[in-house]
Amino acid sequence: MSDATAVASVPMQWVGPLRITGNIAAIETEVPLATYESPLWPSVGRGARISMMVEQGIVATLVDERMTRSVLVRAQDAQTAHLAALELDARLDELRGITRTCGKFVELIGFHHEITANLLFIRFEFTTGDASGHNMTTLAADALLTHILKAIPGISYGSISGNYCTDKKATAINGILGRGKNVVTELLIPRDIVHRTLHTSAGAIADLNVRKNLIGTVLAGGIRSANAHYANMLLGFYLATGQDAANIVEGSQGMTVAEDRDGDLYFACTVPNLIVGTVGNGKGLDFVEENLTRLGCRSPREPGENARRLAVIAAATVLCGELSLLAAQTIPGELMRSHVRLERRHETTKIGG
């Protein structure tokens, strides 16, 4: 067996184009999706086609960005842990200075802490430029932990990772505080497009969203999440653009909102945990480089801007697939008919346009 790293081939298609506006950029682009679930391509393609029929397209608003890493320290008792937490709060500027020694693109923007018994969990929050930030934040957290243990009395090492981040796990704290890029996407679809292209009505989609995504998820015990299948689009997009695919776990947390506005459909997806980057591990592969370039995420811009562009494209892709699936599920038998028809094809073509 060769020691060389092999590349696993996953079928990929470019879907679209889709239209995006908002506070990051005005974009018209096709998007790459690498997946074995071949019906995903035409499903996302249908949502993309609708975005091109609406003047504003999908309005994507990036509302926050922060990558997190948590550490764990131990104290003799809860009172000592509490005093250490108060000391931490007073040293924010000092800790920011320590962080800046770890690289020019990492910045400590804040932290949260929680005490359980004699354990102090500290959740650091960073900006990381165009990197998704896994390694960058771990490096900074390690330096911060080393400094804290020397500077604050009464505490000792627990772990460089305290599971309070939370990395690659679906948790309430990520849904509340966010991890990565937090993007809200919105699309207002006129009544005639809903009927002609989705073959349903705004009221039917809004009702299904409440009964399936909201009530169904509550009954299932979902955590800060109410959507049909965000993970599908994120996995395809992540694999195609060199992201850490395991981050779809927290990425799948998000809320879909659908409203019937006098026959027009207001459709929105909030994705609070988009962990994407345009530099770093996984980005050196030829196909990733080519895909990021084609998405316009390799252009010379200020640090962080390419990653923000990638995030809003990812979030818009999520909306396209979510919209198409919910519409299909309002029609009895439509979902299964589509899967049978598309998955029995032996030849694939570019979808969308």
Rank of each mutant, 00 (worst) to 15 (best):
M1D: 14
M1P: 06
D3I: 12
S9Q: 14
P11A: 10
G22M: 01
V44R: 00
R46P: 00
A48E: 02
A48S: 11
R49T: 12
R49K: 13
M52V: 13
M53P: 01
V54M: 05
I58C: 02
A60D: 04
D64W: 12
R66S: 06
S70E: 03
R74H: 11
R74V: 09
A75M: 03
Q79V: 15
A85V: 05
L86Y: 10
L86S: 12
E94C: 14
G97H: 14
R100W: 12
C102N: 03
F111L: 04
A131E: 04
H134C: 14
M136T: 07
L144M: 06
I148M: 07
L149T: 04
K150R: 12
K169A: 15
G175H: 02
G178I: 03
G178Y: 02
N182H: 15
E186R: 07
R196H: 09
R196K: 13
S201L: 12
A206V: 01
N213Q: 13
T217S: 07
A231G: 13
A231S: 15
L235Q: 03
L235K: 06
F237P: 00
T241C: 11
D244K: 07
A246D: 12
V249W: 05
V249D: 06
R261S: 10
D262E: 14
G263T: 05
G263Y: 04
L265M: 11
C269S: 09
V279T: 08
G280N: 03
G280F: 01
K283I: 07
V288P: 00
L292A: 02
P300E: 09
E302C: 07
L310T: 02
V312G: 01
A314D: 02
A316Y: 02
V318S: 04
G321P: 09
L323S: 03
L325Q: 01
P332D: 11
S338G: 15
V340D: 13
R344M: 14
